[in-house]
Design a protein around this nucleic acid. Structure first.
Lengths: 151, 151
DNA sequence: TAATTTTGCATCGTAAACGATATAATTTTT
DNA sequence: AAAAATTATATCGTTTACGATGCAAAATTA
């Protein structure tokens, strides 16, 4: 028999892992019509907030490394959502900007958050219960950033 | 400027996504010596609880599809952690069992959960705050399972 | 019993993640 | 200024995820 602490039901990380995957799945019906994936949607959110950003700005914001973000951006450029131009002052940098198509997509996307809230609300009862866990998740994320930096 | 609801900081899913990734990163120093990845660790947890399971048992337990689990199990078999035998009553099934090596790994792994708790505790203050969000995550997961089944 | 459907698993293709490494441009040091 | 170190991004290889499809064994129906 398993040690108590090794039981799957006692694992917080497994819950986060599952919740994250299933939530991404819930976005599918809304992102498919736009032709983007969930990570690409996150990049769009970042760019809709600030039009002009470097690869590093984006990867910092999403807590992803450039080796994940670069191919992501390359695919998005291919899809005509963004442009990647060489930086003028610093030629190492790549400046990422939205195309007209990328900018226009914001209008189609603006209802997605409320659609998702409504969908979850159908099955869970109260959205407040979910917003209540946000500060804890933020603390966890901050803690993990430090933990992971130490190794 | 972005619509308020489209701001990254207002996205619960982004938090789950980030928290899950960073937590998996925190497991790295403990799983590397064992030569397994986090999803493989999850499979081990499942098998340590019940020695003998079909591919479907495991994929149900982890909320993953067989097209994810099968290659995972193939790699784990190659690594000598599990065996996959054809089912006797039902020849379609694959019965997954632990090898001696896989069973023995439990002893090396039994301290991992407390190590991780301690590590997080260092940076976050109280573990209770984390356990408090578990019921909400469970409700969210259950709700999302249904939501995703409808589409 | 033969035909059909369903089920359990596997394979394929694509997109993430991420460690390791490479490369070119900038900074810092000598 | 030349050399060394750092920085920003990109490339490569492996492992996940997951939609789509295939296939053989069982279960169901005709």
């Amino acid at each position: 028999m398993a040690y108590e602490q090794l039981k799957l039901d006692n694992q917080l990380c497994f819950r986060l892992y599952t919740a994250a995957r299933l939530t991404m799945g819930a976005y599918h019906p809304y992102l498919d019509p736009l032709g983007i994936t969930y990570p690409q949607y996150l990049v769009m959110l970042v760019l809709w907030e600030h039009e002009k950003q470097t690869v590093m700005d984006i990867s910092h914001r999403l807590q992803l490394d450039t080796n994940t973000v670069t191919p992501l951006l390359q695919r998005m450029e291919k899809a005509g959502l963004i442009k990647r131009t060489k930086g003028k002052e610093d030629a190492r940098q790549r400046i990422v900007t939205l195309t007209d198509k990328g900018l226009a997509m914001q209008e189609q996307a603006k209802h997605i958050p409320e659609c998702l809230s409504a969908e979850i609300l159908n099955h869970i009862g109260s959205i407040e219960e979910l917003t209540k866990i946000v500060p804890t998740l933020d603390k966890l994320i901050e803690g993990l950033k430090q933990t992971n930096n130490e190794h």
